[in-house]
Design a protein around this nucleic acid. Structure first.
Lengths: 204, 204
DNA sequence: GTCTATAATGAGATAGAC
DNA sequence: GTCTATCTCATTATAGAC
């Protein structure tokens, strides 16, 4: 019997993830989630009580997928070159598996920024100064990197990884791609992005 | 009397823009738009007939703000250096005036990609090959630029400009900024981004 | 053109049988 | 645990007075 629970609960979460990721909280319908899970709408309430709580489960799961990735780049002890060459392809691969995840999180954060602030507060992230910023600063002081605020570089790195997925429809139209071409584009990006970004940091 | 029309209509559009940009179509409430415009809910329907049509007006306006900017970078005849140095600060300035616009457009495109496809089709954009891609290719062929697919560079440029606004809450938390600090961050970005991106393109 | 009141519907949530 | 039927409320949309 216990297995039944986990099976249904897992089916529900999976369906809810699909629907919430694509449509956001406001656009999602409990009926659609139930249909996608192949069960009855009442079951959603049996397991998760309300739409809010079901959403909360999906949103926390999403943060749980994103934050470790962010922290791994922010806090890595490795030199930046190795860090980016390892991190960027891994990051892109993870997003490929859940392509709607970044847009979902960004949209829901915009809709309700306090939720994020509260979560961070409650988890009590010590918010240590990211090591990657220190490393960038050091490289600049030593004249190896060009003089750009480390924060600007960091945001540009994340932007370069995440944005293509958030803007997929726009990219497809602007560059005349179908889904297959877009997938090739992402694979190419995995290879070429570290090179491009590192080249941007280094002094001539 | 005619003036009354345009005044009310303008007030409504402005209120609808504020609400739709922040909450998206699904999260927006006609009541909230009416309150924000300081008029009665019924007036919204008098002027725009339905929520769908009011949204359509706001969405078209949004595309009308974004596409000219995109085309101006894509199709500029100027050398890339001048193009980026002029375009990026101008782009960022425009977004600063409507900070929720990019997230709004991206979210609504994800929610309904066909709308975009249809619009582009109906406008019949000839979709000429972007000149900036040709210029990048030329620079590579001549050995001035590093060998990265021009499309990857183009998307990275757009990402670097747009992403900070879409991810504002995340950036603020990750880097411990308040609104004032974030504004300074954006101003700094306007100055430093062209430098960083051009450095990324150029060969050592 | 602008308002109040109300209709019509959609969606989250619950009751209760099995 | 799972389903059907139903309740309740929020929200879009309209009717009709002024």
């Amino acid at each position: 019997m216990e297995q039944e629970i986990t099976i249904s609960e897992e089916k529900i979460i999976e369906a809810a993830r699909n629907v919430f990721h694509r449509k956001g909280f406001d656009g999602a319908r409990m009926q659609e989630i139930a249909d996608e899970a192949g069960i009855n709408k009442a079951m959603l309430h049996y397991y998760f009580r309300s739409k809010d709580q079901l959403f909360e489960a999906v949103f926390k799961e999403a943060l749980g997928r994103i934050f470790p990735m962010l922290l791994s780049i922010l806090m890595s002890d490795e030199p930046i070159e190795e860090n980016l060459k390892k991190f960027i392809p891994a990051y892109i691969d993870t997003i490929k598996k859940h392509p709607y995840l970044p847009g979902f999180v960004l949209h829901e954060m915009t809709r309700n920024p306090e939720r994020l602030t509260n979560m961070v507060r409650s988890v009590g992230v010590a918010s240590a100064p990211p090591k990657i910023l220190q490393q960038l600063q050091k490289g600049m002081d030593e004249g190896r990197y060009i003089a750009i605020a480390p924060e600007q570089i960091l945001v540009s790195v994340l932007a370069a990884c995440i944005f293509p997925f958030v803007a997929k429809p726009m990219v497809k139209v602007a560059l005349g791609m179908d889904d297959e071409k877009f997938d090739q584009f992402i694979n190419q990006r995995k290879e070429q992005l570290p090179e491009f970004l590192l080249n941007g940091i280094k002094k001539k």
